[in-house]
């Protein structure tokens, strides 16, 4: 009883009010995107802002879908899904081996993976572009997917999760005569599943947002991602904010839904990845 009285000090009350006010400010851009996307040109350009569109119009969306916007969305989903699947596969295999297998060079390999994470990812974009051109993958989804899968964060995260696999269970599986494949799929995978879930969402969202990589790797109109598409709208139609907001909404809404659905996994994932390191 005493404690709960103590906790709501005037400072805390004031701080929480401030926090709520800030929350409103943080949600506001999202609100402004969605309402802006259904405003008429007059309402968008009004000198006195239209706080709520009383006469919503689908005109901006109609103009957005005159362009291959759905194709851009599809490209993005394809790139993100492939990156996610490949990253989860390679990272969970490697993470398990780094945590639970004894092999020569394990320590050094892990150290190299970790130190690469501290380097600025964008610095290698120029050579990556050249490499992709050489492999004839430039301007294809693979030019974005492959470098994303190579980034070592996933391996690091999955190693942290795999540390939790009890050695006794692996030992029992071995005594039962289970081979590597059976042990990994039947014993290891179920235990590290939450980790894979976290990594999946994390990879999906970071790939969705990796604008610089997409900008460099993809050129043709039909290959663009939704982020590149909006950026293109912005350069071509710089003051047509209604249209641009429609594009932003098309990009933001699907990913927000994914995030809200898997929010719990996600918070757990970014926490696990960091705190133990």
């Amino acid at each position: 009883m005493q404690a709960s009285v103590n906790r709501t000090s005037p400072y805390r009350l004031l701080a929480i009010l401030l926090l709520i006010a800030l929350s409103v400010l943080f949600l506001f851009p999202m609100y402004w995107i969605i309402t802006g996307s259904v405003k008429s040109i007059q309402a968008v350009n009004a000198a006195t802002p239209v706080w709520f569109p009383l006469e919503p119009t689908m005109d901006n969306y109609a103009r957005l879908f005159d362009r291959p916007a759905l194709m851009w969305l599809w490209n993005t989903i394809l790139i993100c899904t492939m990156s996610m699947l490949l990253t989860c596969t390679t990272a969970s295999l490697a993470g398990y081996a780094l945590a639970k297998k004894n092999f020569i060079g394990r320590g050094i390999i892990f150290a190299i993976f970790i130190s690469a994470m501290a380097l600025p990812k964008q610095v290698i974009l120029i050579p990556l572009l050249k490499e992709m051109s050489f492999l004839r993958l430039h301007d294809t989804p693979w030019a974005v997917i492959l470098p994303t899968v190579g980034w070592p964060f996933g391996v690091f995260l999955m190693k942290q999760f795999s540390e939790n696999i009890p050695g006794s269970i692996l030992e029992a599986a071995r005594i039962d005569g289970a081979g590597e494949v059976i042990t990994f799929t039947q014993v290891v995978l179920p235990i590290i599943k939450p980790g894979i879930g976290a990594l999946a969402i994390f990879t999906f969202i970071t790939t969705w947002n990796d604008y610089f990589m997409q900008l460099i790797m993809l050129n043709s109109q039909s290959k663009l991602t939704i982020s590149l598409g909006i950026a293109k709208l912005q350069t071509e139609m710089s003051n047509d904010f209604g249209l641009i907001m429609a594009g932003a909404a098309l990009s933001a809404i699907p990913i927000t839904v994914v995030f809200l659905m898997f929010q719990k996994f996600f918070t757990r994932g970014i926490t696990m990845g960091a705190v133990k390191g």
Partner: peptide
């Protein structure tokens, strides 16, 4: 055998890492 198994697990990750992180870093 242990070494072989360990590296079999590591192989996909190492391949991606060498091709798309280490190699471009060296090139840079």
């Amino acid at each position: 055998r242990e070494n072989l198994i360990g590296y079999a697990y590591m192989m996909p990750a190492i391949l991606f890492f060498l091709s798309f992180v280490i190699f471009p870093m060296g090139m840079a």
